[in-house]
Design a protein around this nucleic acid. Structure first.
Lengths: 237, 237
DNA sequence: GGTCACCAGATTGCATACAAAGTTGGCGGC
DNA sequence: GCCGCCAACTTTGTATGCAATCTGGTGACC
């Protein structure tokens, strides 16, 4: 299940063609099929999707807003290369927002919602059982979907959109700094969080969420990337 | 002082011409020189700023992302007409985020920051003393700047950008639903919040902030807008 | 030999032209 | 007289062309 499958468009009602390209690029970036620093030339992307640069520009602008792409005037757009500091800020933001989402979700959760969560968990389980890089990508995405579902359930469209951005950027950060050894997003955590939601124990859910996010962040290698500050820290271009 | 005066561009690095138009439109919307529901035709806006539709489109897309403009495919863009529910979500989000910003700001606040805050307060004072609708507009904006300065000081670029959006949308909501009688944004509150920041009393600052936001929201008339649901509720077009 | 200036190539920024979708007004039929 | 259909207009969506800017390399000059 991807973000685009949700019944509402993430934003106002932008052009659908550009939105489609945005989604494709977003998935590719999150899955790390597009490495950070990769140049996204308008003409090149346009040729790839068989659309004009106009549409590509629109898509790139959206991604730039989301922080997944960095645009430099008269130079072009590149897949974002979030710094460790940016990564920390993203996780700080999530630690702030998600517990509140849980509290709100508890007020509104219904059996059908629980069922949907269980579906997501089952999907995660299935993916965890397998091996391979593509599976790992799907795992990161599935993990994000859990948090997005939580945001959706909370019923605050503003925070939900913020979370869409935060989850996307988190996925990019995990792909960048994640240590391959450990499971990037402790799956078991999701199960216990869901249990707390079912029990309508907001304090427990909040606590579990914060620890969950701590856990994700702890699994990252956020050292200053060689300590250098030169342009994009030798962006693997 | 407007957002554009800050030393960094609010976003990636979009085209500067489009950014300029975005700023102008944003100011106009927040100041309610552009009433909610007003159609923003690409050609019309383009003629006004003497640029092509291409640039206008870019600006409108940005505003659409910020929630200040609503775009409908093949129909055009309109100044957003936030529903009472949307308004509540915006304030809920602010009640969540701003106390955290205050706590972070306390860790980093320095005398020069305090001085900047005092400047903002003085500006507010000056505006409060006068009368007239244009003054009232400036007052709303100045009030927003206080909160933006707080966000800036917190040092989290992610949350800062969220706050930029929230403050802008709040201003729109206040312009829409604000009761003219009461002062929209209790100015005295800002002073006491700043005092709490100076004393580095995070709990007090957080409490004051929440009450401050409560106060703003309480001053609004968030009734279901006449109960009618016809297109844009008779959008004054 | 090193440095600076200049030039060629490529890429983005912007404007314009064309195509598609929607809206409005009028006309004819019922 | 009212309803539905059709056509012209208006507005947006997309493609393409041209100008400005940046990059990288070459050659002259110090």
């Amino acid at each position: 299940m991807s973000i685009a499958d949700y019944p509402f468009a993430p934003l106002g009602g932008a052009e659908d063609r550009a939105m489609a390209i945005r989604e494709q690029l977003r998935e590719a970036i999150i899955d790390r099929r597009l490495a950070p620093g990769t140049k996204l030339g308008e003409a090149e992307v346009g040729a790839l999707f068989d659309v004009s640069r106009t549409v590509v520009r629109s898509a790139l602008q959206m991604l730039s807003f989301e922080g997944l792409v960095r645009s430099e005037r008269n130079r072009g757009s590149f897949v974002a290369n979030p710094s460790p500091e940016e990564a920390r800020q993203v996780f700080d933001s999530r630690r702030l927002i998600e517990p509140a989402l849980a509290a709100a979700a508890i007020e509104r959760i219904r059996p059908t919602d629980v069922a949907r969560f269980r579906e997501l968990l089952a999907e995660e389980d299935r993916l965890m059982g397998e091996r391979g890089t593509s599976v790992r990508r799907a795992e990161i995405r599935a993990s994000g979907d859990f948090h997005l579902e939580l945001a959706r359930l909370a019923g605050n469209a503003v925070l939900e959109r913020f979370m869409e951005e935060l989850v996307a950027r988190s996925s990019l950060v995990i792909a960048l700094y994640g240590r391959t050894g450990a499971s990037s997003c402790g799956h078991a955590d999701h199960g216990s969080i869901l249990a707390a939601l079912e029990k309508r124990d907001a304090a427990l859910a909040a606590s579990l969420l914060v620890h969950h996010i701590d856990h994700i962040e702890a699994d990252l290698d956020l050292r200053p990337a060689g300590g250098l500050g030169l342009r994009e820290a030798l962006a693997s271009d």
